[in-house]
């Protein structure tokens, strides 16, 4: 009897602790979001979207940084998506279990969780050192490299969800595999691949470390891809670390912008993948 009470008590304690742990996790999420919203909203204004980054003390906005982030994220996706999709296609359709696929799959998983600052260093030695100066295109390449593993993984997973029978059906009509893949399998997996794309955009639009020494930063408007370009993460870094109150306020506003964008994308991606019955958005 004594033993049973003891076990009941330990049972109760353990599950209370696990409930508390969950509460703690959710509390931290809410605390972060709350701080972001309250501090970010108070610095939010229309100026943020219409003016350039200011010198300390004067007023200004984040227009050049927002523009730079959008441009480099878009270019990064343009670089990363085709390569990632094709590689994912190889893994799911052609290679499947051959040696190359096994190795690529493994290396891709490692790259998926590799530190992004390493990618920054890699692109620095590869592009910046060769060009002799920092540039937006170097930043875009760094972001593209980070997007590749995300796209490879999601493409492969999504193509695998397409039933084999419709491939067989296409083949029976005399289609070569490439026709089957582009005309039958891709359309069937469209939602899934779009999910992957959203996840990739979400992943790279908040990246800071790889941009620090590739795109650097730029206090002024610049649309030239061969020159340093402002971007939200780098501006947030610079402003938050500065002693100026107005700069810090703008850093919060910028952080709110990025987070709102990224969370919006992840929630959409998650709801699509929930509909598809897979666990892509699980953060792994």
């Amino acid at each position: 009897m004594n033993k049973l009470t003891q076990r009941r008590i330990s049972n109760f304690l353990a599950f209370t602790a696990s409930t508390l742990a969950t509460g703690l996790g959710l509390f931290v999420l809410c605390a972060i979001l709350w701080t972001l919203i309250s501090r970010g909203m108070s610095a939010m204004s229309i100026q943020l979207f219409t003016q350039m980054t200011p010198a300390p003390g004067s007023s200004g906005g984040l227009l050049n940084a927002i523009y730079g982030s959008v441009v480099m994220t878009a270019l990064g996706i343009l670089i990363g998506t085709p390569i990632g999709m094709l590689a994912g296609t190889y893994l799911a359709e052609y290679g499947r279990t051959d040696h190359l696929s096994v190795v690529v799959r493994f290396i891709n998983d490692v790259l998926l969780s590799a530190p992004s600052i390493i990618v920054g260093l890699f692109v620095y030695t590869l592009v910046v050192m060769q060009m002799g100066h920092f540039s937006a295109i170097a930043g875009a390449i760094a972001l593209g490299i980070i997007a590749i593993p995300v796209m490879v993984r999601t493409t492969e997973d999504m193509l695998n969800l397409v039933p084999k029978s419709i491939r067989d059906g296409s083949a029976a009509l005399g289609a070569q595999p490439w026709r089957t893949i582009t005309n039958i399998v891709y359309p069937a997996a469209r939602n899934g691949v779009v999910t992957g794309l959203l996840l990739a955009i979400a992943r790279i639009s908040g990246e800071t470390a790889p941009l620090l020494f590739t795109a650097l930063n730029n206090q002024f408007w610049s649309a030239r891809l061969d020159q340093p370009m402002a971007n939200l993460p780098a501006v947030i870094f610079q402003y938050a670390m500065s002693p100026y109150k107005d700069w810090q306020a703008m850093a919060w506003a910028g952080a709110l912008l990025i987070t709102a964008f990224v969370l919006f994308l992840s929630v959409i991606a998650r709801s699509i993948s929930a509909l598809l019955g897979s666990n892509l958005g699980s953060g792994e």
């Binding site: 972060i32 701080t35 947030i236 850093a251 990025i258 987070t259």
Partner: peptide, 17 residues
């Protein structure tokens, strides 16, 4: 979903927070 959203918050936001 809430717990996993923690993974999508950009790291720089954790930094300033």
């Amino acid at each position: 979903t809430g717990i996993e959203l923690l993974a999508s918050i950009p790291s720089i936001v954790y930094g300033i927070w």
